[in-house]
Structure formats: structure tokens, C-alpha cells
Amino acid sequence: MAEKVIICKDLTKQFGDFYAVNQISFEVAKGEIFGFLGANGAGKTTAMRILCGLSYPTSGEAIVAGFDVYRQQEDIKRHIGYMSQKFSLYENLTVLENIEFFGGVYGVSRKEIKERSDLLVKDLGLEREAKKLVSDLPLGWKQKLAFSTAIFHRPKIVFLDEPTGGVDPLTRRQFWDMIYEAASSGITVFVTTHYMDEAEYCDRVSVMVDGRVEALDTPNKLKETYGADDMDGVFYRLAMGAKRTGD
């Protein structure tokens, strides 16, 4: 049995009488690419904030990278990586400074940062841009760099919140090549997206509707279960029944 890096049981977050997250249960295995889908307002962001150690649940249990979401938030933060489309890099630092900063924050030694940042810059093909400000990079490069800094400290899990929004189809695919590479090196990838074709690239996909995990399986099984040709069809069928709308 593969090692479990996320274990969620009846996890619930209540705001007053509103159940943003309502008794969700699932497990994610080491090295898995886990798609976390849901309509706007379904509760994805709230659930993700709890799993990242940024918010306390109201009830239920969750263990992330071996740490408890109630008592060990700081340990969780040290062992995960996080990247979103909205916040990822400091625009007024250079490429190298950003790597150094994030490496330092996550406790990577100076020596190691030096060695590995040179390697990383080379891998990304950013040698000429290494000393340029991040604000001068095209969006696609920023996203690739942001992902690389999010996994620079070799976390057990990386959380990606709509990482590919707004980029061109070619860059989007290069980004997924990087995700596959990270997963094959043993990093668990927890990803949300609005692109349904990207849901197909995940090992397993969960779909949240109105605070609950309404479906969870491999993309193929989901298509079979819901009699849909693609994930778009699966999602549409599930989300159509949603009562809540929101951001």
C-alpha cells in the first residue's frame, strides 16, 4: 500500500450556519497527481486553506505530510509547497533573488541554494534572465519559475491553485510536463484548475459540489460512471445540481 500524504476524514468548516466544507473525506498517495475540482463557491479554496495549515477546521480530522491540521500547522507549512496564479513571486526581485528568498524561507542551506539555483536556472533555460527582475519575464516563464521555487525545498506535497490561468496552450502543456516530472520524483501534486482537459492529466480527480466531495475517481472511471465523453461532461453533470454559487 502506497504511503498516504494527505488523509482527510469528515473535515468540516463552518462559518455561522454556513457549511463551506461539509464532511469531506479522501486520501492522497505519495507521488499522486490529485485534481481538486469544483464549481465557484463549492468550497475548494476553504478546504485547501485548511490543508495548507492556514485555517482551522471546525470539526473532522486531517493529516497532511504526517502532521495534524489542528496542532501542527507550522510543521505542515514547512513540508509543503504552494503556488497560485495570483501570488507566486516577488516582481521586484530578480530570478535568482526569488529562488534564494524562497529557498531561505524554507530553510534550505546557503550552500545548497547556491548549487541548486544555478542548476535550476539552467534547467529552465533562464541563464540570460537570471539577473533580470521577475517583472520583466513573460507570464509563462513566471509560472514555470514559480512552480520551481514552490518545490525548491523538495516538499512532500505541492498545492497548485489554478496554476495555468491565462497562459497560452503551449506553455500550459510545458507546465504540465514539469508537474509530471515532479510527481515522478515522488512529490505529491494537489491541483485545482478550470481547464477540464487538465483534469484528464490527473491520476485521480475529486469534484466538490456545495461543500461536499460529490465524486472521486480516476478520470476514466468518472467518465464511465457519468456516461460522459470527457471530463467537461462529468463536471457539467455534477455541478449542474449545485445550489451555491460564489467565488
Binding site: 469544483g38 465557484n40 490561468g165 491565462g166 478550470h194 467537461d232 457539467y236 455541478a239
Partner: peptide, 10 residues
Amino acid sequence: TTGVDVVSRK
């Protein structure tokens, strides 16, 4: 429709 889910987009 940017950032809007599939159902609302439709």
C-alpha cells in the same frame, strides 16, 4: 468568462 466555472460559462 475568465475564472468562471464550466456551468456559468455555458
